[in-house]
């Protein structure tokens, strides 16, 4: 359940962004979660509202965009989706590949409100 730690880190980031942007609260947070990031979207959604309570992200909607793992092939130069249990090039079969996507754990956009004070 490290999703709790991730949610805490996420809310801290949202607090920073809200302060930096001189907004008063966040109403929607979009994040990208890679299939190899080790984070479970459902667990993140379950704990986010609890962590956000009483912060500038209280009541904010969390939207998670899953990102599939992809590999770039050093042999043929191609880039293709990777099966989770197989790090190889789907096009030429080479094993000389590196992960080009799938580890994401990023905030991609945030909807901010500036309530009248």
């Amino acid at each position: 359940m490290h999703e709790l730690s991730i949610a805490v880190a996420l809310v801290e980031q949202v607090e920073d962004i809200v302060a930096r942007e001189r907004a008063t609260r966040a109403s929607k947070v979009m994040i990208a979660v890679g299939s190899l990031s080790g984070a479970e979207p459902e667990a993140l959604l379950a704990v986010f509202p609890l962590v956000a309570e009483g912060t500038v992200a209280d009541g904010a909607e969390l939207v998670i965009e899953p990102v599939a793992a992809r590999v770039r092939c050093r042999s043929c130069g191609g880039e293709a989706p990777a099966e989770l249990g197989f790090m190889g090039c789907a096009m030429c079969g080479s094993r000389e590949v590196e992960l080009s996507a799938g580890r994401e754990l990023n905030i991609t956009s945030i909807e901010l409100f500036e309530d009248e004070r």
């Binding site: 509202p49 909607e61 939207v63 899953p66 956009s109 409100f113």
Partner: peptide, 27 residues
């Protein structure tokens, strides 16, 4: 997408905006 909502669909009004919303794209 995965969502956690206070959901508003179709005719339902979105969350009330007092000062207007804006979206900031980030990485």
């Amino acid at each position: 997408h995965w969502h956690s909502h206070k959901h508003s669909h179709g005719a339902e009004p979105p969350a009330p905006a007092e000062g207007g919303a804006r979206t900031v794209a980030l990485q």
